[in-house]
């Protein structure tokens, strides 16, 4: 009987560690944070908690009641270097994105892809799972997938997950020409094998169970992958897939979760609708570490 490979556990593997690290970071250099839109009571509570615990140093906006204006001001403050991170409250996601992606701001640099990364801590897995992109890139093409991988891998490394293992998710783990999701994954896996993608290990296509369950990977005959069975980062083929996985895990998977938008001048803490105060607070901690 072949010995089942052990999963590699990175140094940072829980939200307790993320929050502790974020607090340490803010103790040396306070993370200046601005809240856009105070209409979501849970996000306000999370923001105040973060301020009270010195996770962030709150920066207030004049005219904060006008959420639309507050978003504009917050983005300008970020561009001007006056804040280290933005926390999005109840302000409609789509409106915020519209302002954020407006080239005249300029919050996003030319050629940069902004993406959302959800972080999932389900004690059932033993380490953190990062899922992307649940917030911005609707149906990433090959080039965008490469950028998604780089954003997520850079972030994972920054919070202490060295050489993250990136799974390109699909419905199957074989390559079918009629399924572009699988062919894209195969190309990216080959690019990784040829060391064209730095700082992470990429494999795909992988189905969900094969990505996170070593026994499932082995039962499908995938035994030499450095990613299968022990993925850190899950790259989903569409936005609704990533969002579905993220919310399935938070609503039903007994997981702690948080989310952050990366790729702009400063990180944006972005929680999902059903996220609890604690999970919204975790999103803020992620943004502190990303800043």
């Amino acid at each position: 009987m072949e010995k089942t490979a052990q999963m590699t556990i990175p140094e940072v593997h829980s939200f307790e560690q993320i929050v502790a690290r974020a607090k340490e970071k803010s103790a040396t250099k306070p993370a200046r944070a601005v809240l856009v839109d105070t209409s979501n009571a849970e996000m306000v509570t999370a923001f105040e908690k973060a301020a009270g615990e010195k996770l962030i140093e709150p920066v207030s906006i004049a005219d904060a009641e006008d959420a639309n204006k507050a978003a504009t001001v917050a983005l300008q403050m970020a561009v001007g270097g006056e804040v280290d991170l933005i926390v999005k409250g109840g302000f409609p996601h789509i409106e915020f994105l519209r302002q954020m992606l407006d080239r005249t701001v300029p919050f996003v640099g030319r050629g940069k892809l902004v993406s959302h990364i959800g972080v999932i801590d389900t004690k059932q897995y033993g380490k953190l799972l990062f899922v992307t992109d649940a917030g911005l890139t609707v149906q990433p093409d090959l080039k965008q997938k490469l950028a998604l991988i780089q954003n997520a891998a850079g972030f994972a490394a920054k919070i202490g997950v060295e050489m993250p293992r990136v799974a390109l998710l699909a419905a199957v783990e074989v390559i079918y020409p009629q399924m572009p999701v699988t062919t894209d994954a195969a190309i990216l896996a080959k690019m990784s094998e040829r060391k064209q993608i730095k700082g992470c290990l990429v494999d795909g296509p992988l189905s969900f169970d094969v990505a996170i369950d070593m026994a499932a990977a082995h039962s499908k005959g995938i035994t030499s992958s450095e990613v299968a069975g022990q993925a850190d980062i899950l790259v989903a083929p569409t936005i609704e897939t990533a969002h579905g996985i993220y919310t399935a895990m938070s609503l039903y998977g007994k997981s702690e979760v948080g989310g952050v938008i990366l790729g702009g001048k400063v990180p944006v803490a972005l929680a999902s609708r059903s996220d609890s105060v604690s999970n919204k607070y975790r999103s803020i901690a992620l943004a502190v570490l990303a800043s």
Partner: peptide, 21 residues
């Protein structure tokens, strides 16, 4: 009614793996 085979397959498997569905 989901948009793609991937969305359905992946979200369902997440629920089976981690939510004991």
């Amino acid at each position: 009614l989901m948009d793609s085979i991937e969305e359905c397959n992946l979200v369902a498997k997440a629920l089976i793996q981690f939510a004991q569905a």
